[in-house]
């Protein structure tokens, strides 16, 4: 079962002083799946994201990420007992994300993320945004800047490759005509797609999207769903997504995890979730045994 997981979150707890934001949360995201994390406002979804991507250090728990050879999962216990944060081999890697600082989560473990409130580099052009996200390979090619300053060809080739990759993504998200415009000049929906493309330019194995459909109209949400499905299909990237737009969640998710007050209340396929009385109760804000009466009650 665990052989095909990309991410295992176990007993994750996050406390801010006296406030318990996440309580003993465990879930798994399978390789190549689109896993959705849903729940009412304030349920702790973004906190989970911030723990996975290294922006918060969890109070307790283990967050393990893996790519490559599935057999590496067997080494998880040994890695946890050691004081190391990762075990990398030619055919794969195993990472303990809770031990890594935020930028290494992206650089080494290859987890990319987007933000609830879009965080593009608004004063830089669309193309530059996609080049900044390829910082680490370009930095290596520029010989930590030294070769680049001296004008070696190595860096120019690397930059051309990076530009080509950016062009591919711009064609995919239909923004190729606006490549030379500042990112802040794009309409909202385009900015959302650009942020996803920027995250994808880091070559992630796991893409974490924080409410990608927020503020989009139904047509744009539809396009977003298609984009995410095609990303999954073409790049084999696993996707973890927080979303309030249930049409998107139900349409594309393979697996749904429901959070409420920092606790996992349900898990399963979208069809299972839709009919789970626990979930309905959480979203309506009532106890489980009152759900029937709330639903059947005529609206006065």
């Amino acid at each position: 079962m665990s052989a095909t997981d990309v991410l295992q979150v176990e007993h994750l707890t996050m406390r801010f002083g006296g406030l318990v934001a996440i309580q003993d949360l465990s879930f798994r995201a399978r390789h190549g799946d689109i896993t959705a994390l849903i729940g009412p406002n304030g349920a702790g979804k973004t906190t989970v994201f911030n723990c996975i991507t290294g922006f918060y250090k969890p109070t307790e728990g283990r967050i393990a990420l893996h790519h490559g050879d599935p057999a590496m999962w067997d080494e998880l216990g040994a890695l946890t007992d050691s004081s190391l944060r990762k075990r990398v081999r030619a055919d794969g890697g195993l990472f303990l994300l809770e031990r890594m600082p935020d930028y290494l989560v992206t650089k080494d473990a290859r987890v990319a993320r987007t933000f609830q409130n879009i965080r593009l580099f608004k004063g830089m052009t669309v193309l530059e945004n996609l080049l900044v996200s390829q910082h680490n390979p370009l930095m290596r090619a520029s010989g930590l800047t030294v070769l680049g300053i001296l004008g070696f060809g190595v860096y120019r080739h690397a930059e051309n490759r990076a530009t080509e990759k950016a062009i591919q993504w711009l064609e995919k998200i239909n923004l190729i005509d606006r490549a030379d415009d500042p990112a802040g000049d794009l309409p909202y929906g385009d900015q959302r797609r650009l942020e996803i493309a920027r995250a994808m330019c880091t070559d992630p194995v796991l893409l974490c999207l924080d409410e990608p459909a927020a503020g989009l109209n139904p047509r744009e949400s539809g396009e977003l769903s298609e984009l995410l499905l095609s990303i999954r299909q073409e790049t084999k990237t696993s996707i973890l997504l927080i979303e309030h737009d249930m049409s998107v969640v139900m349409e594309i998710s393979d697996h749904v995890v429901v959070l409420d007050y920092g606790v996992k209340i349900s898990e399963g396929t979208s069809a299972e979730i839709r009919d789970d009385p626990n979930v309905i109760a959480a979203y309506l804000g009532v106890e489980q045994d009152e759900v029937e009466s709330v639903i059947t009650e005529p609206v006065s």
């Binding site: 991507t53 922006f55 935020d102 930028y103 290494l104 992206t106 650089k107 990319a112 993320r113 933000f115 965080r119 593009l120 580099f121 608004k122 004063g123 830089m124 530059e128 080049l131 900044v132 996200s133 910082h135 680490n136 920027r198 995250a199 880091t202």
Partner: peptide, 17 residues
């Protein structure tokens, strides 16, 4: 580019490795 990106948004920089 990283300097300018840092000026624009530091958190986004960290999320890009």
């Amino acid at each position: 580019r990283a300097w300018e990106a840092l000026r624009e948004d530091e958190i986004a920089c960290r999320s890009l490795g």
